[in-house]
Nucleic acid binder design. Structure first.
Lengths: 125, 125
DNA sequence: TATAGTGTAATAGTAAAATATAACACTAGG
DNA sequence: CCTAGTGTTATATTTTACTATTACACTATA
């Protein structure tokens, strides 16, 4: 897996797993790949995987069972909260950044629309 | 100044200076504060400031005159390009993140609108 | 009870960012 | 010429993320 060297790998692993958990690749209650397998898949050290998982366990989004494996929480409410939080975090970030560049609310929305349109125009498929 | 420990300080200094340059605090051709003064203001080491400045000099957004100071480029075209690039980078980032969470183009736009409305509703002033 | 598969943790080493400190190079003004 | 203000560079040190490696703890099963 390719990582952005501007942000810690363990942090990017969390986002990767969030993505898997929120888009159906990993469903509530599902067992995650073994930590050693994840390390291989992501070409990363076991300890780095473990660091990401530890934080997620603390957050309650995954649950650990020693000797068995790590499991996506079966608490769908918590997963819904997680998704909402991730979306809000993203929105808050763009909004603040663009607002800081003196774009008005309307300009921010307009620029996003424009971006999406242009993106679609550039598609080949 | 407060920094996010998830991303290098020199990188955040670049963004700080970009902000000053694109919102009128620092105008085209303006002299920047002395590197040692910036270091004090940002409670950061001179070398860290210098690292940020070096990259910006390479990019052509600021120009260095040894013995005199660092200056915002007088090339307003380049500054406009910089702003456009920063905006696009931000938009691309949210879009990809939210798209990765299975939000459609319409949902992305709608969620941004909703965020802005709610933000306004929460204002005290 | 042995073994394979799992999570967990500790140790030691490497690399990058940031710091503290000092020195060097150039400019302007007395 | 000297000095103060500026950018630039270098060295040594600390901190943090990451890696490599090893060991320990628990579960299931042959």
């Amino acid at each position: 897996m390719k990582f952005d060297d501007k942000v810690p790998i363990y942090y990017q692993i969390k986002n990767y797993l969030y993505h898997e958990m929120l888009t159906g690749t990993l469903n509530p209650g599902d067992k995650l790949p073994a930590v050693r397998q994840l390390a291989v898949d992501l070409t990363v050290n076991v300890n780095t995987v473990q660091r990401a998982l530890s934080e997620m366990i603390t957050e309650g989004t995954i649950e650990s069972q020693r000797g068995k494996g790590n499991f996506v929480t079966a608490d769908t409410t918590r997963l819904a909260q997680l998704k909402e939080q991730l979306v809000m975090t993203q929105l808050a970030q763009v909004y603040e950044q663009l607002h800081a560049l003196n774009l008005t609310d309307e300009e921010i929305i307009a620029s996003l629309k424009r971006y999406i349109e242009q993106k679609g125009a550039g598609q080949n498929a």
